[in-house]
Design a protein around this nucleic acid. Structure first.
Lengths: 231, 231
DNA sequence: AGATACTGTGTAAAATTTACACCAATAAAT
DNA sequence: ATTTATTGGTGTAAATTTTACACAGTATCT
């Protein structure tokens, strides 16, 4: 395709802020860079968009190549376009987030040379990251904190079957505050999109809790009304 | 600056969704294009980012060049990166919105050749726009609709001094629904960030209403608490 | 049998949201 | 001067939602 567009030596990239939840703790996916600049630094998984792929496609591909994870539901949340954010040239990056259940089964294994390894790191006490990735992370964390209140993102972080206590501790981890147990349950159940299972938690050394499932269909009804929620 | 980055022939652009409010009606700023592709079509004001300017700076510059408007508080809301969204090559665009009081004083006058003219158009019954600008507009409109509930954007659309009825009709225009007069006033005033002036509306052929001002300082107090609003 | 650790439940008070209608004030028209 | 037209400005009661708060029940482990 011929272009009449003025251009300069410019690059689009994608950076991914991937949240996971494990042992009551919120974590984020980092890589150890194996390439200049910022070689050996910790960074968000991120790389350059190809000419023939949309940015949404690029986000999926890049995350896969750097971490081995696929099929996440990724969503863009902000674009970072300061002139000198990349030391080697002009790079504008579109940041995406996704949420995932951390699962011992899913191995984190980069399939490119650009990352030496990928691993989960608690969101608290994050080290300094390469480029402006610390800022990107902060922006992403604020975004999901807000979206937690009006999007069903919590359930992407939990196993398919979960207890109400697990759900609550996830909310507490994201919002960084304690919630009242009775009020939390009352409210969650009142929405009507949690399905109580005939099953209990296993392997705990105390009274086992009931398991619940997120009912996406029922949620959709409520969610479709969400835009005119404030009648 | 030398670069080791792989690149391709690619372009960043900015598109602006600028809302204005006039005569109880919500409007949007359009241009008539004077350049291929989509010559003579209506479009959002938008153009290409330069190498040495941040995307935020570019947004301001581009809006000025195409419409003559400056010093708006612009905010990015989404990035559009489909492969074929531009017929002449790969162009990824960052969309910004801003809100402004429409004011006969401020002339709309493009300072480049790329736009033949700029003008306000009611948001209802928008014609088909160039590129994917209709989609960009829709996304932006949904964004401000949501933000209206937690950001003081309404006041950017109104004159400095306004009546409660004007404020209400703005909310009604953005949310596209009728609100109850007494409840609306009660709630707005209860926030405490509206300052009642010793002045009344002029030039109306009926009982003049009191004028109010938005008190940004008081708002800031409330707004700083906004993140932990749900205690 | 006892210790441990978490599950699961209800109610009353407070705060917020909703629904709803009429007189007052002003300017324009007669 | 009177009437007409038009919007301004106001309160209350009912319904709903949110908040604060504590203890007995049950599974497991020793």
């Amino acid at each position: 395709m011929e272009t009449a567009l003025p251009t300069f030596n410019s690059v689009f990239s994608i950076d991914c802020v991937i949240f996971g939840f494990e042992a009551g703790e919120l974590k984020i996916l980092l890589i150890e860079r194996n390439q200049e600049p910022f070689k050996d630094w910790l960074a968000l998984p991120g790389y350059i968009v190809e000419q023939d792929e949309s940015i949404d496609d690029a986000a999926e591909r890049i995350l896969y190549e750097l971490t081995g994870l696929r099929d996440l539901h990724m969503q863009q949340f902000h674009t970072f376009g300061e002139v000198n954010r990349h030391p080697q040239g002009r790079v504008i990056t579109v940041a995406y987030y996704a949420l995932i259940r951390i699962n011992g089964q899913k191995e984190l294994r980069p399939v490119t040379q650009y990352a030496r390894k990928a691993f989960w790191h608690p969101v608290n006490e994050l080290p300094k990251l390469a480029f402006d990735h610390s800022e990107i992370f902060d922006t992403g964390f604020n975004k999901i904190r807000r979206r937690l209140n009006y999007q069903p993102i919590a359930f992407e972080l939990l196993p398919e079957k979960f207890t109400l206590t697990q759900l609550q501790s996830l909310y507490e981890a994201v919002l960084n505050k304690k919630l009242d147990k009775r009020n939390f349950r009352k409210k969650m159940l009142s929405y009507g999109f949690l399905k109580e299972l005939d099953e209990k938690q296993k392997g705990v050394s105390y009274r086992a809790a009931k398991l619940y499932k997120f009912d996406r269909r029922k949620y959709a009804k409520i969610f479709n009304n969400e835009l005119n929620l404030d009648k």
